[in-house]
């Protein structure tokens, strides 16, 4: 594990903690896309099936368990919690997320490293994660005035992706036979989706203004 990978994982962890803080403590999920959260729950559920089949490290196992638990907890809060579900912007969060799932699955059936059950699901989770942020970005664009916690949440998610790219570059130069085209390309696509958001986030931060996205 290198410093970039650790920084990426910690950004990811921190982004989820911010979201849990908002939902659990403030009892609000305003500006948060349930569609994106459901996609993340599906991403983790299909990717971390290997929790039962292979052991990498205690760190990996604990992180996987946290990501699984937190993603389903957030979906539960937004759907069923008496107070939280009332703050959900249902009418604005209209992205047809089901239309992302089928193409990602077909792509995973066609483009993968090995045609095994776990490997195809792992690949599917990579493709789906790459586009899972789309409903959230669309919702931010629609609400325009983004509250601080939601803005920071998306920023740290994007930071996590950026650190992973640095991690891959580092590993490519320091390890032998380290190349993972599928992971890299889906990771690059995913990070590129944040570029526009990053621009406005940094701009609002430098001017110490509230984050506002253009219409």
């Amino acid at each position: 594990m290198n410093i970039f990978r650790l920084a990426g994982d910690m950004s990811h962890l921190f982004s989820i903690l911010l979201l849990l803080l908002k939902i659990h403590t403030i009892k609000s999920c305003a500006g948060v896309s349930l569609k994106t959260q459901e996609l993340y729950a599906l991403v983790f559920a299909t990717r971390y099936l290997d929790i039962f089949t292979g052991y990498i490290s205690l760190y990996n196992t604990l992180m996987k368990m946290f990501f699984l638990w937190s993603s389903f907890t957030i979906v539960w809060y937004m759907r069923y919690h008496n107070v939280v579900r009332r703050s959900y912007d249902k009418d604005q969060d209209t992205f047809r997320h089901y239309f992302l799932i089928l193409p990602c699955f077909i792509l995973a059936l066609l483009v993968h490293e090995k045609f095994t059950f776990l490997e195809v699901l792992w690949t599917f989770s990579l493709y789906l994660e790459a586009v899972a942020i789309l409903p959230q970005l669309v919702l931010l664009q629609r609400t325009r005035n983004v509250d601080n916690l939601t803005g920071h949440y998306v920023f740290f998610l994007g930071a996590y992706r950026s650190f992973y790219i640095l991690n891959w570059i580092y590993r490519y130069f320091t390890e032998q036979n380290y190349y993972k085209w599928i992971t890299w390309i889906s990771g690059l696509v995913q990070t590129a989706l944040y570029a526009d958001f990053f621009y406005y986030y940094v701009k609002s931060w430098r001017n110490s203004e509230r984050l506002q996205l253009p219409a």
Partner: peptide, 10 residues
């Protein structure tokens, strides 16, 4: 030790 067999990233 080869890294391509197992997925060691999250």
């Amino acid at each position: 030790q080869k890294s391509e067999e197992k997925h060691d990233e999250l």
